[in-house]
Every structure is written in structure tokens, then in C-alpha cells.
Design a protein around this nucleic acid. Structure first.
Lengths: 238, 238
DNA sequence: ACGACCGTTCGGCCTGCGCCGAACGATCCG
DNA sequence: CGGATCGTTCGGCGCAGGCCGAACGGTCGT
């Protein structure tokens, strides 16, 4: 009778169903670990309440807790969580409802460029993936990306050593379906390495308080020069 | 403050958070449309209650409702829903807790062979995908599958006409991460066509009441002959 | 046209759970 | 060692929402 269909889908969904918990998970999408206090602030609840929420998220297997001194840090259990949730996000809203101005501003930043766990997402992430497919660095297969015989060489020009990346257990490249663009961006070891590179070269800067990314002036010219990417909202929105 | 991270992830998750609603969605994973009455029965609630649940699932964009006479049929809005949810399921339980005997039986059938929306999943689905990759019908890319120049010819031997499948808007082949096996099986137009073929040839039969599939005797020999697949639980579990 | 059936809406009950403040343990600092 | 932080557990409050039965409209059968 119980129809267990997806094992404890309900249990997992219930853990994400609360706005406060969703906000906490969202805050951790950047892949960083945050202390309880900070997550309480992000969720807008008292520490005691936050403690309960976080315990539940750990219990259901979405977060892990590490203790450092008197602080307890929480982070996503791994990239798969962010990727599965990102994909879940593509199901929801075909047409976003109007929002307040400040929310709108943030939303614009988020759709333009943001991190998804540890790689680049948003318009920038998708555009970058498109370019790297167009120039043969990767081939596209459905919503995934495949290595080509040009991969190592091309990435080396960006200062990314594929051989090193292979030493990790992580898959070299993965596709991750973008919540805003509904098309895949680059995840996996290469995705993370690209994000690191962009940050290290000062092309993008982390926003404070959320996982949006600001494209710097240097970044704008570099993206145009290196990849022919122009992020100005010519055709998009209004 | 609100930190909307994933747009209304919380809203979507809340829709799935109730066991009754999760059971309803699970019942529709097979891709079929079921009348309200039947879904009420599956959920174990009164028709009035079911009506509220279903309205909510429609509202959040997971289900669509079609009216036929005095019946109202509900079905998943599309394969993406089943695939995203299937993937979500891979996050949850690394080690399933012990269950009652009848539940165990059903679970065994489900892990062995079942449908995911309209294609094959479970051990069978994953094994089939592996074989078709091994024999060059498809290439694998991460968790996705790619067409090769042998695809059309190989599938023709199974009575599947790729040219026809291309006429639909649907992608020819997709990877869908399997909840039990944590590895991809074949979805997309080809995935659906394979499931149709297996059913049409009597290799598998739909179980009643859930989306499990029974492999028939004819199916067992055919699978061994055509694909070298042996589903007996020799190496699996313990 | 009348009765049987399917489904939704409405009103009312009640549990679950999200919220907080208080109290307590644990860790760091001077 | 004492005070300040950080975090958890506990008790109690209040509301959202899941549940049902009753009533009603729409559709099919005869």
C-alpha cells in the first residue's frame, strides 16, 4: 500500500520544504562551509531554531557538520547535492513573478553569473560552456560534456593542467543543468578549475551574502578577448 | 534577507514533502495518466483530501490534469519531472533500513526492473545501457549517452526505427541517473522505444499497483540471447 | 428526466512543527 | 579562573495544513 516509489522522497523533500532550510541550503550552494551563527542569520531565525533546522538537514544527509573550536561549520555533502537541486530548480517556474526592486537586482546578478557549488553557472556559465564546445575543447552529448583530443591542450592555455585534475576521484567534466538558462554548464573537476581560474585572475568577484558573482571590468575585456563572450543584456529581459 | 537562492525550491519541495503527495507522484512515475479516484486510493485518503493534494501538485507544475467525461486524469507534466526526481532519489539513502517482508519483495522487484516514466530502469535498465554501450550502439559521456554511427543500424535489428524517433521533438537519447544503481540508464525517445519493444515482445510485464516490471520466462532467455544479460542475483547484494 | 457516480469546495477538527527564550555545556580569552 | 561566545536541548506557544464528512455541480447510464 505504502507505495514507496522513490525511497524516502517525501522525507528528503520535507527537509527542503521549509523556506528557512531552503535558504540555508541555498547559502551553501557556493560549496563553502559556514558556521551555525551565519546560517541562522541568513535564515532569519534564532540560533536555537537554526540548530534544529541544521540538525534535520544533516540527518537527512544533505549537509555535513565539522567542528572547529567552539564553532560548527556546515557544508553541502558534495557537488551532487547542488547539481541535483539545481536540476530540480529547472522544473519549477516558467515565468517568475514580479519581485521587489532589491530582489530584482539580486536576481539579475544571479542569472548573469553565480556559482553552483564550486563551478560557474548562470548566463556566464552557459556561455562559457557553449564557447568551449564550439572551439572543440569539449564535445556535447545531450546535457553532458565529453573530452576530446583537444581538451588537454586547450585547457593548458588557460593554465589548467588536466593531468593534475585526473588525480582526483572526481569525474573530469560533468554537465549540470542550469536553473535559469535551462541548458547545461560545466561542472566536475574542470568546472571547479575554471571557476578557480576566473576568480584567481580577477575576472569575477564573489558577491557578499549570496552566491552571485560580479564580472569585473578586467573580466569583461578578458572574456571578450579570450572567449568572445559579451554579457551585456542586449537581447535579454528589459 | 529572503535569500531566494533556488527560485521557489521550498515551494516545490513542500509539494513533494507530504507522504500522500509523494505516493501520488510515485504512482504516476510510469508515465500513465490515472483518475483522481485511483490516486486517492493509492494515497489512502478520502476523495476530498486527494482533490486538495492533486490541486496543489498541479498548481506547482508537476502534474497536468485532463478531463475525460466525468473523470479527471492526472499525469506527470513530462519525462523531465520523473528524471529530476529520480536523480533526487539518488541523494538520499545509501543503506536502506530493514523492511517488512512484503515491502522487501516489492523492493526487490523494483530494484530489478521497473519503469521510470516511460523507459526501463533498475538493474535491467542499467545493464541494458551497459550492453548497448559495450557493443557500440551508443557511446557514454559521463552520465549521458551519445549517438554513434552504428546507432541506427543496431537499433533497427531490435525493430526500432531511429528516423521515426527523430520526428518527435524529444531528444533521441538521454541519460537518467538510476535511483537504485546510482548509474545512468537510457531515457529519451530511444529509452521509451526500448521499453515499448520489451513490453510488446512480452519480455517484461507490468506489475499491478506499482511501476515494477516482471521479467517473463521468455524475457529471461531473450535477454540472455540478445544481450547476454543475466539478471540472477549472483554477485549482487548479499 | 432521474439516479448513480465522479470530483470539487467548504467548514471544522486536530496534529505537526516552526518559533522563541531560558538554561546548560563547551570553548576560547584575558 | 571568570566572563564572553557559540551552540544545543527543553518547554511552551501558535499557526499552517492535512484530514474528514456534508453539500453541490457535472456527466453518464437508462
Amino acid at each position: 500500500m505504502g507505495a514507496m516509489a522513490i525511497p524516502d522522497l517525501a522525507r528528503l523533500a520535507a527537509a527542503l520544504a521549509d523556506p528557512v532550510r531552503a535558504a540555508m541550503v541555498g547559502a551553501l550552494f557556493g560549496g563553502v562551509a559556514l558556521p551555525q551563527q551565519e546560517l541562522a542569520r541568513r535564515g532569519g531565525v534564532a540560533p536555537s531554531t537554526a540548530s534544529e533546522h541544521l540538525a534535520r538537514l544533516v540527518d537527512v544527509g544533505l549537509l555535513v557538520r565539522t567542528t572547529a573550536g567552539r564553532r560548527r561549520y556546515y557544508r553541502l555533502v558534495g557537488p551532487e547535492v547542488a547539481e541535483a537541486l539545481e536540476r530540480l530548480g529547472t522544473l519549477a517556474p516558467p515565468a517568475p513573478r514580479p519581485r521587489t526592486l532589491s530582489q530584482n537586482d539580486r536576481l539579475r546578478v544571479m542569472t548573469l553569473a553565480r556559482t553552483c557549488y564550486d563551478h560557474l553557472a548562470g548566463v556566464l556559465g552557459v556561455a562559457l560552456a557553449d564557447v568551449l564546445v564550439a572551439d572543440g575543447t569539449f564535445a556535447r552529448a545531450d546535457d553532458a560534456f565529453v573530452e576530446t583530443n583537444a581538451t588537454a591542450l586547450r585547457l593548458e592555455r588557460l593554465g589548467i593542467d588536466v593531468a593534475t585534475l585526473r588525480t582526483t576521484r572526481r569525474p573530469l567534466v560533468r554537465g549540470c543543468l542550469d536553473w535559469t538558462e535551462r541548458r547545461p554548464h560545466l561542472a566536475g573537476a574542470v568546472g571547479a578549475a575554471l571557476a578557480d581560474t576566473f576568480l584567481a585572475r580577477g575576472w569575477v568577484r564573489r558577491a557578499t551574502g549570496h552566491r552571485g558573482l560580479h564580472v569585473t571590468e578586467a573580466g569583461t575585456t578578458a572574456l571578450a578577448r579570450e572567449f568572445g563572450i559579451d554579457l551585456r543584456p542586449s537581447t535579454s529581459s528589459g
